[in-house]
Simulated assay, not measured.
Amino acid sequence: MRHLNTSRPSPVTFFLMGIPGLEHLHVWIGIPFCSMYVVAVVGNVTILAVVRAERSLHEPMFLFLCMLSVTDLVLSTSTLPRMLCLFWLGAHDIAVDACLTQMFFIHSFTTMESGFFLAMAIDRYVAICHPLRHATILTHTHIAIIGIIVVVRGVAFFSPHPILLKQLPYCRTRVIAHTYCEFMAVVKLACTDTGTTKHYSLSVASIIGSCDAIFTAISYAFILRSVFHLPSREASFKALGTCGSHVCVILVFYSTAGFSIFTHRFGKNVRPHIHIFIANMYLLVPPFLNPIVYGVRTKKIREHVVRAIRVKVT
């Protein structure tokens, strides 16, 4: 492993180390990562194609699902191919501008992912708790406004990240102890005081993530309360199973993202390879699970996919 030091204030490239302490396992770690990426791409593209082709699926739930699928595709594609090049080809060097661009996509689209989880939770809350008002509350116009707000929020709050880092001098080392260009991993390389920059990033990520998680939890709490009051036990178990799978995906996302965020602030004793491995999970697992939980387990999408396959076979 080469560690390159430089006294230049503006390095041309950074050096991605990968997962510290697990360099000898990079090739093997890349196999499940690649498998999850393939499933994520195929699953999310399938959802987009099915919803686009079937006008009967142009409902709030599926429109939000399409927004989530696009977010998953961008989020996973901005990290996985480059990560696999590191694991399998030893391509550790990454241009500074490419690194900062990747950073912007990671943090802004992670925020969008959180926002669309909240939007889908609100949609389910309205559909289950106020079914008669669902069509009037979540019109196509309102759905578009919600989508725009989520996107603008992610771009607005995290556009400053690459701009701030572009202006910093880097005179210690250009080695990033990570598999991708995470903000906190890069800012540590600067040879000037970055306390304000770090606090801004951690505060924005913590506030947005916490607010989204709290409101999502409140929505599902109301949903579960309504589910338990359904007259049919079979309907209750069915709704509970659907909500349970949704909650599991959301918990994986927020728990791994929260662990990564707060480890930078409080987890001084957490081993680097554990921190970085879990930091990869919130970028890999949700895009992998979302098509399965929200797609395969959704009857309407499953029926349209099966029908399309049968048509092609015959």
Rank of each mutant, 00 (worst) to 15 (best):
P9D: 04
F14P: 03
F15S: 09
E23F: 04
I29R: 01
I29F: 12
I29M: 12
I31V: 15
S35D: 04
M36K: 12
M36G: 09
V38W: 05
A40T: 00
V41E: 07
V42G: 02
T46A: 04
E54N: 11
E54I: 00
S56M: 13
S56C: 06
M61S: 12
C66A: 15
L68G: 14
S69P: 11
D72V: 07
L73P: 07
V74K: 14
T77D: 03
L84G: 06
F87G: 09
D93W: 08
A95Q: 06
T101L: 06
M103F: 12
F105V: 15
H107M: 14
S108C: 13
F117C: 07
L118Q: 12
D123L: 06
Y125S: 00
A135D: 05
I145A: 15
I148H: 14
I149M: 14
I149C: 15
R153Y: 12
R153K: 09
R153A: 15
A156R: 13
Q167V: 08
L168I: 13
R172C: 06
I176P: 13
M184W: 08
A185P: 04
V187K: 06
K188V: 10
L189W: 11
C191H: 08
T196S: 05
Y200P: 13
V204T: 14
I207M: 09
I207Q: 03
G209I: 01
G209V: 00
C211S: 06
F215V: 05
F215Q: 00
I218M: 00
F222W: 01
L224R: 00
S232K: 10
R233S: 10
A235L: 10
F237Y: 04
A239H: 10
L240I: 01
T242R: 03
C243E: 01
G244E: 03
S245D: 00
H246V: 03
I250V: 07
V252I: 06
V252T: 08
F253L: 08
Y254H: 06
S255Y: 03
S255C: 12
S255N: 07
S255I: 14
S255E: 06
S260V: 01
I261N: 11
F266V: 07
N269A: 14
R271M: 11
R271K: 10
P272H: 09
P272Y: 01
I274K: 05
F277I: 08
N280Y: 08
M281W: 14
F288R: 02
N290Q: 03
R297V: 03
K299W: 05
K300T: 10
I301D: 05
R310P: 00
V313H: 04
